[in-house]
Computed example of a mutant assay.
Amino acid sequence: MVAFDCDGVLVDSEPITNLVLKDYLNELGWRISLNETCDTFIGRSIKEQMPYMEEKLGKALPETFLPEFQRRRDEALRQQIRVIPEIEQVLKKLQSSAMPFCVASGADSGKMQITLGHTGLLPYFEGRMFSGSDVARTKPAPDVYLLAAKSMAKLPGRCVVIEDTVAGVTAGVAAGMHVLGFTRSSKADALLAAGAKQVFDDMRDLPELIL
């Protein structure tokens, strides 16, 4: 089985989401740059990072912070989301080979419905979508990948994970899965250091690595 992360692997959402977060944190008083926002928060649950944000701000976040962030994020995603180049061709090849695959994201399920829905990828994953909303702990904990394997009746050691962040690679490794690192959002050496077995920078190369 192949388990795809969603953001940065299937859809090009990371720049959009992190720009929204950067602008919001700037409004609240943290003058963080876009590069710093990406380095700090990419691949991680915003909800779980809220105590860290409060520490950096030196004050409590507004009670409406999370729903307001999600509202802004979702609006931006609806307008700007695009697929990762060549990913649909990869999914079609997996379908034709009868290789089972799913999406296992640390993001909330509502976000996946927007990103996969607005890019036309949703039909590939109907009934095989696992999110941070489904588990107690999000990445870098392995929970969502273990849930995906259990739900699809696959042993973790027989699963391949496609990830683009250190947190995601760490989650896949902790789940006992073979992890391939996609270097669109993170540097190759960082993904390898986290435990990725191989790295690649072009989705056209992926079928040869998994089929």
Rank of each mutant, 00 (worst) to 15 (best):
V2D: 03
V2T: 09
V2Q: 08
A3W: 07
F4D: 03
C6N: 15
L10P: 01
L10F: 05
V11E: 00
E14W: 02
I16F: 04
I16K: 09
T17R: 13
N18T: 11
L19N: 15
L19R: 14
V20K: 02
K22F: 08
D23A: 14
D23R: 15
N26W: 14
E27K: 12
W30C: 13
I32E: 14
S33W: 12
S33Q: 09
N35D: 14
E36V: 06
F41G: 05
F41C: 07
G43L: 05
S45T: 10
I46M: 13
E48T: 08
Q49I: 07
M50D: 01
P51F: 00
M53K: 01
M53T: 01
E54H: 00
K56T: 00
K56N: 03
L57V: 09
K59F: 00
A60H: 13
E63V: 14
E63N: 12
T64N: 11
L66F: 13
P67Y: 04
E68L: 10
F69Q: 00
F69K: 02
Q70K: 11
A76P: 10
R78C: 13
Q79Y: 12
R82N: 14
P85Y: 09
I87P: 02
E88M: 01
E88P: 02
Q89T: 15
Q89K: 15
Q89R: 15
V90E: 03
V90A: 06
L91R: 12
L94K: 15
L94S: 13
A98F: 11
M99H: 10
P100Q: 04
P100M: 02
P100S: 05
F101T: 04
C102A: 12
V103M: 10
A104H: 10
G106N: 07
S109K: 15
G110V: 03
K111F: 08
I114E: 03
L116G: 10
T119Q: 09
L121A: 00
L121S: 04
L122Y: 13
L122V: 08
E126F: 09
E126K: 13
F130L: 03
S131C: 10
G132N: 05
R137A: 05
R137I: 07
K139D: 06
K139Q: 03
P140C: 05
A141N: 09
A141R: 08
P142D: 06
V144K: 03
L146G: 06
L147C: 12
A148H: 08
A149R: 03
A149E: 01
A149D: 04
K154R: 13
L155M: 14
R158L: 11
V160W: 15
V161D: 04
V161T: 04
V161Y: 06
I162K: 06
T165H: 01
V166S: 06
V166C: 05
V166F: 07
V169G: 05
A171H: 02
H178W: 12
V179S: 09
G181D: 01
T183N: 00
T183Y: 01
T183W: 01
K187S: 11
K187I: 06
K187F: 08
A188Y: 03
A190H: 11
A190N: 12
L191V: 01
L192G: 11
L192M: 13
A193E: 10
A193V: 10
A194Q: 07
G195K: 03
A196G: 08
A196Q: 04
D202T: 04
D202K: 07
D202R: 08
D202H: 10
M203V: 02
D205K: 15
D205Q: 14
L206W: 06
L206Q: 05
P207S: 00
E208T: 11
E208V: 11
L209F: 04
